[in-house]
Every structure is written in C-alpha cells, then in structure tokens.
Computed example of a mutant assay.
Amino acid sequence: MTREPPAPPDDETAGRDNGNAAGKTYPVEEGARRLRKSRAWYLRQLRAGLLPGHRAGRTWFLTERDIDQALEQTAQPANGSPPSATEALGQSSAQKLTQAAGLSRRQRRHRLPPPAG
C-alpha cells in the first residue's frame, strides 16, 4: 500500500483559490501590507478579536472579505483626526482593546466612559 502525500500547509496555498466557499485565502502579511501595518500589529488585532480572520491550528489566514472589513474598520476620516477608541470600535471592542493592552480594572474604569443603560 502506498500512502498519499500530506496536503500542503496553508502558507503554500495562500493567495490561491482553494475551492472553498470563501474563495482565495491570504496570509496575514498580505492583510498587513494592505493596511500599511506590521505583521505583528495585525496578529495582535486578530488575537484580540478586533479584526476579522480565520485560524487553522496556529496559522491565521484571511479572505478578501476579511481584508475589506479590516480596511473599513481601521479607516480614518479625511480631516486627519483619528476617532477615539470608543467611537471607532464601539464600547465592547474598546473594552477588549484596553484589556488586551494589559490595563488593570481601575485603569480601564478611568479611561473608558461608563456603560450606557
């Protein structure tokens, strides 16, 4: 009996149509390049749940839709003044951001507005 060779890892199929419903997949480097950010920054955002992406084992990959959504989420207004964290990300995402930044509960309480309701 002969065994079939294992399927190639995700890195080798990145940027190709792999036959799934989502279409092409891209490595994190491609998403970071299109957002003009570093790979490390993009990975931190993915791990914190602030940007869309998919994970297979230890490898993250992105679809065209994930990259487009990330571009929309990180877009800044034309006047050059970036929105505050709570405006850009919403209350729950802003809380995730501060928790991911390693702030204590007291520090978060002083930096974020009180919850609505």
Rank of each mutant, 00 (worst) to 15 (best):
T2F: 04
R3D: 14
E4T: 14
P6R: 10
P6T: 15
P6K: 12
P6F: 08
P8A: 11
E12R: 13
T13G: 10
A14C: 12
A14D: 12
R16V: 15
N18P: 07
A22T: 12
K24D: 14
Y26N: 04
E30I: 09
G31C: 01
R36G: 09
K37E: 04
W41R: 11
L43D: 10
R44P: 15
Q45A: 10
Q45C: 08
L46T: 07
A48L: 13
G49E: 03
L50G: 08
H54P: 03
R55C: 00
T59Q: 11
T59W: 00
T59K: 00
T59H: 02
F61K: 02
F61P: 01
L62H: 02
E64L: 00
R65F: 04
D66L: 04
D66A: 00
D66T: 02
A70T: 09
L71F: 00
L71E: 10
L71G: 04
T74L: 02
Q76K: 14
P77L: 08
N79G: 13
G80L: 12
G80K: 12
S81E: 14
P82D: 05
A85V: 12
A85C: 00
T86A: 01
T86I: 04
T86P: 05
A88F: 09
S93V: 02
S93C: 10
A94V: 02
Q95V: 02
Q95H: 13
K96P: 05
A101L: 07
G102T: 01
G102Y: 02
S104W: 13
R105N: 02
R105F: 06
Q107C: 07
R108D: 06
R108W: 00
R109F: 14
R109A: 15
H110D: 11
R111G: 06
P113L: 10
P115T: 05
A116T: 05
G117E: 05
G117S: 13
